[in-house]
Nucleic acid binder design. Structure first.
Lengths: 152, 152
DNA sequence: GTTGAAATCGTTTGGAC
DNA sequence: GTCCAAACGATTTCAAC
């Protein structure tokens, strides 16, 4: 993936902030014509710099009020490490990060209740043959803030 | 925030998957008329169930290839805990979670380089008077997957 | 909830500079 | 890159059921 220059950065930042912004507004904001902005957005999408658009969701309101981080490491460190593929089918897992440190992966999960968290942890352990260490999120002061525009 | 019933859940899930889906397509997908779907989406936005729309960004491509989790706890546990407000001005911090466990908060940060991470950690420590424990993300098998539709 | 119509706005393409 | 024009589709509101 090649780098992205200043104007494209501004476009990406604007669309990360408001993914439904019209090309007219976007053009004004970055100081280009509608045609030029349109062309750039299409290229950013094709290159995968923008991989899609999504609604920002209030998880409490949709019945998933419990968020947690689940750090996992293999029960047997010699076994093949294919945890992500083994866990991808669990929809409660929103994100999966491979990390440096004592743990192998950190998962971000969203569930309805402690009971569902318990069930999910069991599924994670058996699906990927791992041990888990769970950190429950109590509140979220802020989340998914758009990336800053870096004008180097 | 009140709960959301089945059809609204389907709408939210669809828009989390594709935030730019047209009302025509959305109506087909959830089995309603365009008018009805439009009305529901407007209500979901007003109620804050959908808090906005954002582009899904490839952070490597926009010059932020280094992601890390930063767990923080106060240097002096007796001091007032206002870390989120003290940290909100740092644009590198994408998310801030208040957590149960030994740490007080877990931050998700995105930076350009190890040098920038070092600088950011110093800023976090001095801004909020906290100690930090950082876990570097090596790769991201998946991230920001849309929530599942739960048909209870 | 539904359909249908109407006005408006945004998207998208293409041509010319 | 710009501007302009044209065709098309989507949004939005409204009335009527």
């Amino acid at each position: 993936m090649s780098a992205v220059e200043e104007t494209d950065q501004a476009i990406v930042a604007a669309l990360a902030t408001d993914g439904r912004m019209s090309y007219t507004d976007l053009a004004t904001q970055v100081g280009l014509s509608v045609s030029a902005v349109h062309q750039r957005v299409r290229r950013l999408e094709q290159r995968g710099v923008i991989s899609g658009y999504g609604a920002k969701v209030n998880y409490e309101a949709i019945g998933l009020p419990l968020t947690a981080f689940v750090a996992i490491r293999p029960f047997d460190p010699a076994q093949p490490d294919d945890a992500p593929e083994r866990l991808a089918h669990l929809p409660e897992i929103e994100s999966c990060f491979s990390v440096a440190g004592e743990d192998f992966y950190i998962l971000l999960v969203r569930v309805k209740s402690p009971t569902d968290l318990e069930r999910l942890l069991q599924e994670i352990r058996t699906s990927a043959n791992v041990t888990t260490r769970t950190t429950v999120v109590l509140s979220t002061p802020f989340e998914q803030r758009p990336p800053q525009v870096r004008l180097d």
